[in-house]
Design a protein around this nucleic acid. Structure first.
Lengths: 353, 353
DNA sequence: CAAGTGTAGGACAACGTTGTCTCGAATTTA
DNA sequence: TAAATTCGAGACAACGTTGTCCTACACTTG
């Protein structure tokens, strides 16, 4: 003998089912579920009992559809959570979302800009209340209609291209200029510059910051020491070896992000040489690295927190004009190796942790 | 003069709006949007033009509600994305979800088990196709009805309590036993054991692994060297100092997770002493730490990948009985400091990166 | 040329819920 | 005691979409 329907084939109970079991009308179930006070105590208890017995849970989508209320969902478009930088943003966003009783859909943008747009459109079809986008590149003008139709967007770390929208970015220019100025003041004039692709505005700004520092110091930046399209630690290591093998090697390095910073660090540590190193982006445990170096740091979580709070203000129609928030950077000296200065003691290294 | 409705107040266009603009029936719009082939070329073009003009995007929730199709969404309940361990799981899950054209709602479990259940119920109301849960503790028997009603769940890193469900976990016992055995074989008999709360089965299993190693070696584990409820690096550092100040200090440490491992590492490095250290969990850049130590490592991303793949198999009804997948661990020797052996060279350290 | 065949597109109902309205009963008041 | 007032609960329609059915028209065929 077998049951009429296997458990896995069981349909989820609806309010109609609960109403039947409780012996009340559909609408009364709705009232009880929504906590309307004007329901008879006894009927309410029958409804609760029936709900529990059947395992009823109101269909959120149907409810939102009928009542026209929001989906209490925001979308976060981000590249890769296994990258500490993005993970910190996502974590901070999640905290703000939870505080606003909102669920967070995290969509990973694919490799190309087309994938990214498609992912955004999918989130729009799901009627998210708003979008947080860490753009990977490409043009965003196709999103104008979505903004006009009421889906607010905040761009994180990079401004949108071809679109007037909110963004929260770092002061890449000033951070890089400060870093390069520090190296120059420490006596360096030949500095290897390693940055990722200049398709990214962040990298362009950082490189421009370095150039400005050189100009301000009245120095010429040797373009043969500027390496672009450095994608990761391994490529960075290779470039370090190449540059140091040249006839006029650099005495210091500036890295456009922490991935190349780590590559340079590893390379210099293995060589045992003491070229100075300044890198954009701090990272976990950087103060425990086997060799001192200086980072351009900033409040990584704040990128997420401020973006999410801005998004919710826009969802609640508290802001109107497109805003750009620029977060400051800070030069964090973990004992940069100057041409003149002595190697600092281990105990001094972690002074800005 | 002002427009009749401000752009921000604009209602999103529906199929009815598109039908009106295109001069066709509602159903024809539906057919075009869903790519039904039997629509006249010219009408289809009118519909496409009207859609583009209005910025129409089909309401995914309404579509799913009517057609009874799935929401193409899974939920991931996780503690904190800024923790590398969880971020790697989330990242791996996201890749699998994307391959299945499924969106991922990442819900952060709060501090207590009650919050966690509430977050799960919210995801059930949203009719996710399945749930991935990294449980923080507490009893999960309340979830049985949800499983019966067709929401599959896979538990990650820890098995559910009071519930028969799929899980993907690490071989904590074997990993800890191997680690302790290594220390014992290197001549250590007084080993400081630092683990987090024993409320977590992972920690109980790891401690049990250590005890087993001692028993197998015919040694007695001095319980005064076993410290539980070590919550983070700072607490770990304090405990190291306390244990080393005792009259019979340990000559080695075993840490139940990487957070305490880092605390111990920092403490030992600052002291400049050479007690041996083995820690559960590898972490980024661990091979660059200023002092060698050994980790119990495992494929962190595989926890996410295998869980997600198992979940989708269950969603597709390809599995029936509750399954537990146990992932192996591996002792990764970065130059453990034995009582007998010499300090290894830096170049040897990174041999299992 | 009449009947049969095929096909495109529209009318209608329904998914699970909630807003609006109405009705009946209980309670109050003159 | 009858009318007025309250208040709880059910009937009905609607949110935006799709499944089902049906009609109208074009085209074939004996």
């Amino acid at each position: 003998m077998h049951t009429k329907s296997s458990p896995s084939a069981a349909r989820r109970p609806t309010m109609t089912d609960v109403a039947r079991v409780a012996g009340v009308s559909l609408k009364t179930v709705s009232r009880v579920v929504n906590g309307v006070a004007t329901v008879d105590q006894e009927l309410a208890e029958r409804v609760h009992a029936a709900s529990a017995e059947l395992g009823f849970r109101a269909n959120f989508a149907a409810s939102a559809l009928r009542s026209g209320s929001s989906t209490a969902t925001i979308g976060l478009l981000i590249k890769d959570l296994s990258n500490e930088f993005y993970a910190n943003i996502a974590s901070a966003v999640a905290v703000v979302a939870k505080a606003h009783h909102t669920q967070l859909i995290t969509a990973h943008s694919g490799e190309n800009a087309e994938d990214e747009l498609e992912a955004i459109f999918d989130l729009c079809r799901r009627r998210v209340d708003g979008l947080l986008i860490v753009p990977t590149g490409g043009d965003h003008s196709a999103l104008k209609s979505e903004i006009d139709l009421g889906i607010p967007m905040v761009f994180i770390d990079r401004k949108p291209v071809g679109l007037a929208a909110d963004s929260v970015v770092l002061d890449n220019f000033a951070g890089a200029r400060d870093a390069a100025t520090r190296l120059i003041n420490d006596g360096h004039s030949r500095i290897g510059i390693l940055v990722d692709t200049l398709n990214m505005a962040t990298m362009r700004d950082r490189l421009q910051g370095v150039r400005t520092a050189f100009a301000e110091a009245g120095l010429a930046l040797d373009d043969s020491l500027v390496v672009t399209n450095v994608r990761g630690p391994i490529e960075a290591s290779i470039e370090v070896d190449r540059l140091l093998a040249s006839s006029a090697p650099p005495t210091a390095f500036f890295c456009g992000n922490n991935r190349s910073g780590i590559g340079v660090l590893r390379s210099l540590w293995q060589r045992g040489t003491n070229e100075a190193l300044v890198s954009f982006d701090d990272f976990q445990l950087s103060e425990l690295m086997p060799r001192p170096f200086t980072v351009v740091r900033y409040d990584n979580r704040a990128l997420g927190t401020i973006s999410a709070e801005l998004l919710f203000r826009r969802i609640n129609r508290e802001v109107f004009d497109p805003t750009t928030v620029v977060l400051p950077t800070e030069l964090c000296d973990r004992g940069i190796t100057g041409l003149r200065g002595p190697q600092p003691q281990a105990s001094q290294r972690a002074r800005c942790t």
